[in-house]
């Protein structure tokens, strides 16, 4: 079963780039990715660029309309994700708790919808 782990944090809440803490933080991500791959849980995972780079597209009356933003979430922004293949929610949550950003941000875990064929 696949679980989407969405990684949220407030801007500037984590370790600052250039500090020793930031090095540890990034190493934490490398280690986590290694772990889920070794355990056969990893499906996909990426970091996203800042929300100030977001563009939204919507189609109205058959016409695509794009607009800058929203880069204005009230507190936290989506910074990245992991798609994990786990046996159940409990296992997914156990892995999600190992994602470094969980220490100052939060990880939202949601099961991927499975369609009956």
């Amino acid at each position: 079963m696949q679980f989407m782990c969405l990684i949220y944090s407030a801007p500037n809440s984590g370790p600052k780039p250039g500090t020793p803490e930031f090095g540890m933080f990034m190493k934490g991500y490398g280690d986590f990715t290694q772990t889920v791959k070794a355990d056969g849980k990893f499906v996909a995972g990426d970091a996203l660029q800042g929300s100030d780079t977001a563009t939204t597209v919507s189609v109205r009356e058959g016409k695509a309309e794009t607009i800058d933003g929203p880069f204005a979430e009230t507190k936290e922004q989506l910074g990245g994700y992991y798609l994990l293949d786990c046996t159940d929610m409990d296992e997914a949550l156990k892995y999600a708790a190992m994602i470094p950003t969980s220490e100052f941000g939060r990880i939202e875990v949601r099961p991927v919808m499975v369609w009956d064929t």
């Binding site: 100030d52 563009t55 109205r60 009356e61 016409k63 695509a64 309309e65 794009t66 607009i67 800058d68 933003g69 929203p70 880069f71 204005a72």
Partner: peptide, 25 residues
């Protein structure tokens, strides 16, 4: 954006929404 997709339904709404977002940022 408009160069790519043509004018949005309401250019003024589009501009003010984006301008506000830039201001917030």
């Amino acid at each position: 954006h408009w160069g790519r997709n043509g004018l949005p339904r309401s250019p003024s709404a589009w501009l003010i929404i984006v301008a506000r977002r830039k201001a917030l940022d």
